[in-house]
Amino acid sequence: MTTATATAAADRTAPGTLTGAWRAFTLQLALYKHIWHGTVFTSVLLPVLYMVSIGIGVGAYIDPASIGGLTYAEFIAPGLVCSVAVMMLGNDMVFPVFGGYETWGGHYLAQRATPLRPVDILNGHLAYAAVFRPFTNCTIVAIVMAFFGVYHSWWASFAVLAAALVSASLAPWLFFWASSLKNDSNLNMIFRFAVMPISLFSGVFFPASEMPGFLQPLVWLSPLWHGTELARAATADVAPALPPVAHLAYLAALAVTGWFAARHVVQRRLNF
């Protein structure tokens, strides 16, 4: 009897795009239940340590005039909200993606054996890493920052949106990269040559305009710089480097092109 009811409950049609992404997302969510306590470090402890040591500690030696009249804590807080988004992607979009294919655990392969299509698997993972994670964890970071008295108005809550945009623009590209790799020994390279430089040189800790002119174009490429400019506009009520629409357009363009690139590679790897 039990088998009969179980069979009747199963959906025997192919899922649509939204349903498929939702089902793939639920797997990520199930895994998250096992690691959520680890996120206490990235979303609470880390920002607090940064704020105390750099924001307040080093800030005591910095003249607000050199950063547009803000206190140094006010200056770095919005960037930290966005930085945590990038840091989380380093956890969610590198090893888990690489391990989704045959080499390690193979979550993707397991999902591929169900009615889910490769694109559903991609969308599900992106929904987790670029929507769920920033909107939960970066919100916590933003709230933690509030205790340092660095906000001017409720507009500050838009910093979380900026962080989510940074996540969305970077996540598909990380997915693309981790899916294209054949050898796990090069996985760590992404931290050294992408995550770290992006985190340090995107105007989070010092205005990007201070960097030598020939490096400026690299800063403009960094999604974190665009996100930080937007977030700082929200929290500190200062004008961003470019019109907000330009920042938004760049991040959106990066997200869309990244998604197509990621879709291409996930279909190549998971279609038999």
Partner: peptide
């Protein structure tokens, strides 16, 4: 980042 970037501030 910290020596030169923040250092300049």
């Amino acid at each position: 980042a910290f020596g030169f970037g923040v250092g300049a501030l």
